[in-house]
């Protein structure tokens, strides 16, 4: 049973891996934006560090750390949502959903693919950060894994929300696959502390796991140690949001099977 489940998950992952293996432009696209972002923000950070001295160096580190870690959430969310859209674009959903593949196995496969996309997309950016700006994000220590894990989980639940909207509203909602997480950037306090935000907006920021991750990251980069409180908040909020997104996905998947959207989606 578990073996068969694993094979089905692998089957769908293999389909995406085969697609990437056959197309270097697709692989290039994965790394293009993270690398470009890193270059722009890296030079900006270098400029601040040169002008402001020691405080500028810390700010530059926070800026680069923010760029790299936010890309984790962005690429995870896009990877998962675009993996689903690939099935719509190739008119393959009809075959996939009449196979014994369970909906949760589909999501598991897309999670696997999104993790692969993040690893391939961010590796050149991490290397460049180290080579060009002598910025080693791994210097944050093992806690970095907890930051990354939280941002990946956030990418999953946002993507599940996007897929739910696609199931509900069809391909008209597919633009959200690229844009929705960018909309959360101002509230995620990626480049500045939550305290900078207007008081009315701060509760929104604090309801997002990402804001707690970046508060924790800045504390770690500034040598303030591990912000366990922020990490606990990020993890707890992620659990809540993920549970809500899974419930929404299950609900919309069933609604699509009732309305016939599963057959006509993408048309």
């Amino acid at each position: 049973m578990i073996y068969a489940s694993g094979r089905r998950i692998w089957g769908l992952m293999y389909r995406h891996i085969a697609l990437y293996r056959a197309s270097w432009p697709r692989l290039l696209e994965l790394a293009y934006w993270p690398t470009l972002q890193l270059c722009i923000w890296g030079f900006t950070a270098s400029f601040f560090a040169a002008r402001l001295g020691s405080p500028g160096i810390i700010a530059a580190g926070a800026l680069l750390g923010g760029v790299l870690l936010w890309e984790v959430a962005l690429r995870t969310q896009m990877g998962l949502a675009l993996g689903f859209l690939e099935e719509i674009w190739s008119r393959n959903l009809g075959h996939v959903f009449v196979s014994p593949l369970r909906p949760w196995e589909l999501v598991a496969a897309l999670v696997g693919i999104s993790a692969m996309r993040v690893a391939i997309g961010l590796a050149p950016a991490l290397l460049l950060a180290w080579l060009l700006y002598t910025f080693d994000i791994f210097a944050i220590g093992p806690v970095l894994l907890l930051f990354v894990a939280n941002l990946m989980v956030m990418g999953w639940w946002v993507a599940l929300g996007v897929i739910s909207l696609i199931l509900r509203h069809g391909a008209g909602a597919e633009a959200l696959a690229w844009s929705v997480l960018f909309g959360l950037t101002p509230f995620s306090a990626v480049f500045y502390p939550v305290s900078i935000l207007p008081a009315a907006v701060q509760p929104i920021a604090l309801a997002l796991p990402s804001a707690h991750v970046f508060e924790g990251m800045r504390q770690a980069i500034a040598g303030g140690g591990v912000a366990w409180g922020h990490l606990a908040w990020a993890t707890g909020l992620n659990a809540l949001w993920l549970a809500a997104a899974i419930a929404l996905f299950a609900n919309q998947f069933r609604a699509a099977r009732t309305s016939g959207a599963l057959i006509s989606i993408g048309e």
Binding site: A4, R8, G11, Y14, R15, A22, E86, S90, S99, L101
Partner: peptide, 21 residues
């Protein structure tokens, strides 16, 4: 209903071998 157009025939069939165990 189509099969993914950029995958080869063999890759497509392999995907469904996995999906159907």
């Amino acid at each position: 209903v189509a099969l993914p157009s950029r995958l080869t025939v063999e890759q497509n069939l392999r995907v469904y071998c996995h999906l159907y165990d």
